[in-house]
Design a protein around this nucleic acid. Structure first.
Lengths: 194, 194
DNA sequence: TCTTACAGATGATCTAAAACAAGAAATTCA
DNA sequence: TGAATTTCTTGTTTTAGATCATCTGTAAGA
């Protein structure tokens, strides 16, 4: 059950057996059915979730009813409305499961305790947020610089796994495109994978 | 000289006098003239910079020669090509000074030493990156959701200081717009500030 | 296995913002 | 102070992608 999370933590920091035991006590396990909600916009985001199996999406619905995907979270990824989780204010994003999904959940109170009792977790999350920030920066520049086709090629090259598991209309939303545009431009993009 | 940086650090974490003395030893001071480069695309980014006075911009130049602003850094902000700084690979961004600017610089080797010798700095940067990530997420969603005019209103509301100090063409680039578009939409936006 | 819903493809039309072009205004600095 | 550079505005044309409207294929649930 905790194998995956420790594998991920230990990619970035070294943990003693007693630290690992302590870490375990802060998380609780939850199973989500496909389409089940983990968080609804407007609620306070109580949990930071580690995906041990499955796939989550976090998204915002605009005034016109259009969904804008903020993030997908595959196995080994974390998901949350960070702003709400850390501030206690109403969540901007909704999070639900695209597949049957297993998550490990930690509350913000326990997150605070965890980082104070196991300071190296601050280092882990520093490194995690650092990498997220780098890739988010690139996505933002790409959204200004690249054409629809280039955005699609970029994600095909960098997240082929995601492209395989996520329906096209959601991928379009993630890229900031309409499903029609994505469908059309696929015809023009020569795909070398089979 | 170090007042500003400690004020910023101590907004997020508590530091002992001896920690502060140690922290000082890792930074060196540098003055940049307006238009002077701190980093050129393609070079390895050697420094993480804390702006104690002035204004930096980090940007990427695309194939057509268009500048795309990644980030502005006012007093109290950090600036770097994080990907290059932490990985040692060639930088994607160029960083230069929009005004005469004072920075405190730390190398990646010293950054590593700093976080190991003063572990609470991992917490500081965890909190810093966490907040940056939240605002970068919002900018990305905004770039998909909002019209040019809404983007402009959004930055006017959230970073009025920046809008005052940055030339309009650079602000346009930051928002992912052309200077012409920004100039035009300004006429339609009723501004309540004086 | 029927049928009800999605997911995806394709066509026609529309529109916001880009691109191109040219001046005017404001700064810089020599 | 005056030339040179940079910033900002305004006009016209073009275009990428959105929107609206069907249609088809696929999967799920009863």
């Amino acid at each position: 059950m905790y194998d995956i999370i420790f594998r991920h933590l230990e990619e970035k920091v070294a943990l003693t057996p007693s630290e690992k035991e302590l870490i375990k006590t802060f998380f609780k396990h939850k199973k989500l059915k496909k389409k089940q909600f983990l968080l609804v916009e407007g609620d306070v985001c109580k949990y930071l979730a580690f995906v041990s199996k499955g796939l989550l999406k976090s998204y915002n619905v605009d005034d016109k009813g259009n969904e804008h995907i903020n993030q997908f979270a595959l196995e080994g990824w974390w998901s949350s409305d960070m702003s709400s989780f850390f501030s206690g204010e109403a969540a901007f994003y909704t999070i639900d499961a695209l597949e049957d999904t297993d998550v490990l959940l930690i509350t913000s109170e326990d997150f605070e305790k965890l980082t104070l009792q196991v300071p190296i977790m601050d280092r882990y999350f520093r490194l995690l947020f650092q990498n997220s920030l780098i890739s988010k920066e690139r996505r933002l520049i790409s959204s200004h610089t690249h054409s629809a086709e280039e955005k699609y090629k970029y994600i095909m090259a960098n997240n082929p796994d995601l492209v395989k598991r996520v329906p096209q209309n959601l991928l379009a939303s993630f890229l900031g495109l309409t499903p029609e545009t994505l469908s059309r431009l696929k015809k023009n993009v020569i795909v070398f994978a089979k």
